[in-house]
Design a protein around this nucleic acid. Sequence first.
DNA 1: ATAGGGTTAG
Length: 738
Amino acid sequence: MASLSTPVISLPCHPNSSPPTFSTDLRFSSHPALSLIDQCTSIKQLKQVHAQMLRTGVLFDPYSASKLIAASALSSFSSLDYARQVFDQIPQPNVYTWNTLIRAYASSSDPAESILVFLEMLDHCSECPDKYTYPFAIKAASELRALPVGRGFHGMAIKASLGSDIYILNSLVHFYGSCGDLDLARRVFVKTPKKDVVSWNSMITVFAQGNCPQEALELFKEMEAENVKPNDVTMVSVLSACAKKVDLEFGRWVCSYIQRNEIKENLTLNNAMLDMYVKCGSVEDAKRLFDRMPEKDIVSWTTMLDGYAQLGNYEEAWRVFAAMPSQDIAAWNVLISSYEQSGKPKEALAVFNELQKSKSPKPDEVTLVSTLAACAQLGAIDLGGWIHVYIKKQVMKLNCHLTTSLIDMYAKCGDLDKALEVFNSVERRDVFVWSAMIAGLAMHGQGRDALEFFSKMLEAKVKPNAVTFTNVLCACSHTGLVDEGRTFFYQMEPVYGVMPGIKHYACMVDILGRSGNLDEAVELIEKMPIPPTASVWGALLGACKLHGNVVLAEKACSHLLELDPRNHGAYVLLSNIYAKTGKWDEVSGLRKHMRDAGIKKEPGCSSIEVNGSVHEFLVGDNSHPLCKEIYSKLDEMALRLKSNGYVPNKSHLLQFVEEEDMKDHALILHSEKLAIAFGLISLSPSQPIHVVKNLRVCGDCHSVAKLISKLYDREILLRDRYRFHHFREGHCSCNDYW
DNA sequence: ATAGGGTTAG
């Protein structure tokens, strides 16, 4: 195509002067090819127009060429690569042509290319970037969240005397906001001399998306006071702020404001209203609006679907799913993630299976993140590993979200080595990747390694957040690292600027209490700047139980029951304390109250994955198809245990268990024992037995598992609500500290 | 003659 650099066909009415200038040649602007560009509906048609433009020489007019490039770059049927080819055929692209390409890349999936084209332009274009170039280039920097790059553009614009162009200033507000620097965004906004409605919209959007919904709403009021008339875009951001604040009352007011002020209701605005209603929990308001919307798209349907799913109304959610015009991957994702997040991981996996069967749409990264989280909950390592292979096969790039999910899944499924392998294999590690790895080590009782990773994280200049500290303190608690825990806790705010939240306090009470520093734990609770929650008193109660402190346990129980009146464990424990101390009136009073209020124990449930399917067992369960075999295995286990000197352990001073549970019979039927028996039957001797329990493992089951691991020479991995127990040769990885 | 800002899933 070398001949294309000089036209082979002479141009119609082309001036004879050389070199030719193509700038504002109106003879081309009415060329029939130009109106054809807008009518193209396929790449084939576009190529025909392209050929015609080449033949007639119209392509060498920069304005016409820009139109072709814009059509190639922005239409759904074309590709930017094609636009780039067109661009490379233009002998002397002018600033318009460059701008068109920079603009197209800025809003493409590869905004970095926009920056590269900008740099190319500096080298190859005789004209300087102008007031149109900067907003596009800044947009690319926003997409990339490339703070230094955008700051560079800001400086260049000022040098080019474009520093007070309102278009550039508005783009900069948006840019600094999307880089997370709300302060710089605000400074540009404040310094904008004649703010237009877009200036206000940009700043309101920055606040709404930057987790400052209150500031967004205040700025909206300020805008009103300044008599700037808001438009539909303003209202979309204001509604998004209401949704973030979960402020239904103000959200409803905004909807009536829109009608009173005759702001035109387009599809996007209606969708934002829908989203606000759904996020504020009023699916009824959403439904009323949905029914009167003149136009609906996939976003409207997905928002309704989300609304029902979030409220746990799956019947209605599935109805919406079936009724929507097409089920894109986002719709599937809503179902999978809402099941996963509401503690229904089996249902989440069932939906994922359906999706696999339906062949299309293809799972995306969000699907895999939610599905991996469901695998992690269930301990379903076979499916989790399958997804890992799937990611590799699809040559999907492991971004930080997926990396975090894989590490979390492998750690929670008991394969810490695989988790470390994933961690070591990636280049980019953000704070969530590091935190997940620290949590993984912590739950496997490797507290010292967890702290080692924490210091490596600091060396890598990754700033720890509240989640990191929860995991670090958790590591200290599981390994009994009291001094380290105390140090980190008191360094959080002054050294790392992370305010200790309720979880950190609960963790710290746990660390102190568990290690016997009950007085210090109580002192910490008394000095808390935020009111203690049930989890804080629960941690203290657990410590009292461990150290047999009846007086403090009674105090912790009454606080706990005040905050969580349906806490079964606290009632049982309190009534056992009363029984031990002879306060029989209190005992019967408590028992009556529990009966009347219908306070029941959360049933213990253990699951085990065998050959890719998950089997669940409840206490004394006899619903499994292999029930007979399981129970005869249990009898055999009981015999072997007894002949090895095992005596059921039922004599703690403070127990969370009720009288009826204390018989040998009930103990042997605890769900984890059923699952272990099933594992012994159905897995080969070399396969470790992975069991996941929803509650904390009881002391008796813990000693039984230790003995079984020795007597049957099997590895047992038991994950309870708080951590892992890795039983091997009669020992547990928790060293009986849990 | 041309071009800047907004909503939905972790």
